[in-house]
Simulated scan of single mutants.
Amino acid sequence: MRVYPDQLVRQLSPLPQCCLIFGDDPWLCEQSRAALHTEAKRQGFEEKIQLTQETGFSWNELYEQWQAMSLFSSRRIIELTLPQAKPGTEGSAMLQSLMQMDNPDVLLILTGPKLASEQTKSKWFKSLDAKGLYVPCTTPEGAQFQRWLDGRINHYGLSMGRDPREMLFALYEGNLLAADQALQLLQLLSPNAAIDCDQLSQYFEDQSRFSVFQLTDAMLNNQQDKAQHILSQLKSGGVAMPIILWSVFKELGILMQLKSTQNNRQPLQGVWSKLRIWDKRKPIYQTALNRLELNHVESLLAATSAIELKLKQQGIEDWTGLSHVSLLFDPKAHHKLSHIDLA
């Protein structure tokens, strides 16, 4: 039976005969294993046997461990790692045979990389799946990652609003292990107080001389020399590109809403309040609104999206492209640079 990692704990009483944990996300795999071991220990499984299908491995060893009496007169966990997720002909026959020999004093855990669809249709997989649980540990993306992140934030009892949550999403999407470690750090640093974006910037930007907020302010004010200098410093300081893109997208989204309202000849007062823009920051946005047209903002969004897509799909950090985006905050640059394709 297929069970996702966040549902696993609810399916472990009583324990199944076997459990298959396969996937490429190390955090989900380890958390699933830990949950299994914790519940197994509570139900009297004290002894652990670890096997790995590698050169020289004999499937008879698995059979002997399945049949052997525990040295400590307790129930036993046999954990078998399949590095290629392919037991082969002999292994497939052995696994199917063991599933015909019920042994309530043994819990078999198989672990390995992500399974292809054809592997889940194999005889060995079906025989184990019928007797136990299959836990696919695939890294969540998009809305699924946001739900996971919200769940971990609640797990650690952290208080943070939408913006810092979006900032964490941009910085850690695709890396659950690093995200969880960051949340543990935040729990130590701010166990009771609410956490805002300024604090996240301070904690996770390698103590750089400049912050991403200074960069976007320079862009909004069309301070091109300053913006290029800050961008260079952020790069040399090891600041993660996703957090810079998050900040640029955030400011462009605000500009888009303000400019659309302005073009529709509607008052900005309600939008200032809706976007929670303080009085002291209104002049920064007003300067950009007076300088940029709606089509300029749309071009900026398209260029920034191309950089983000290149990063997520190809793993390329396009710092030159970010420099190009900064220049496009000057409307004069659009006549000479907007035709350049950043994809």
Rank of each mutant, 00 (worst) to 15 (best):
A170N: 02
L171G: 04
L171F: 10
L171A: 07
L171E: 08
L171Y: 05
L171M: 15
Y172R: 05
Y172F: 15
E173I: 01
G174E: 11
G174M: 10
N175M: 03
L176P: 06
L176S: 02
L176E: 00
L177W: 11
L177K: 07
A178Y: 12
A178L: 14
A178K: 15
A178N: 13
A179P: 05
A179T: 00
D180F: 08
D180N: 08
D180G: 03
D180H: 02
D180S: 06
A182D: 07
L183A: 03
L183Y: 02
L183G: 10
L183W: 04
Q184C: 08
Q184K: 10
Q184D: 06
L185Y: 13
L185N: 13
L186Y: 10
L186F: 02
L186E: 04
L186H: 02
Q187G: 01
Q187N: 08
Q187F: 05
L188I: 07
L188C: 11
S190N: 09
P191R: 09
P191E: 08
P191V: 05
P191I: 08
N192D: 14
N192I: 12
N192P: 02
A193T: 08
A193D: 14
A193E: 14
A194N: 05
A194D: 03
A194V: 06
I195D: 05
I195T: 01
D196E: 11
D196I: 13
D196N: 12
C197M: 11
C197V: 14
C197W: 10
D198W: 04
D198L: 10
D198R: 08
D198C: 02
Q199C: 11
Q199K: 07
Q199L: 11
Q199G: 10
Q199R: 06
L200S: 03
S201A: 10
Q202Y: 15
Q202G: 12
Y203R: 12
Y203N: 11
F204Y: 05
F204I: 11
F204D: 03
E205D: 12
E205H: 03
D206M: 12
D206A: 13
D206Q: 13
Q207I: 00
S208F: 07
R209P: 00
F210N: 12
F210S: 13
S211L: 03
V212M: 11
V212I: 12
F213C: 04
F213P: 00
F213Q: 01
Q214E: 15
Q214Y: 06
Q214L: 08
Q214C: 09
L215T: 10
T216W: 02
T216H: 00
D217S: 02
D217A: 06
A218F: 01
A218L: 09
A218Y: 00
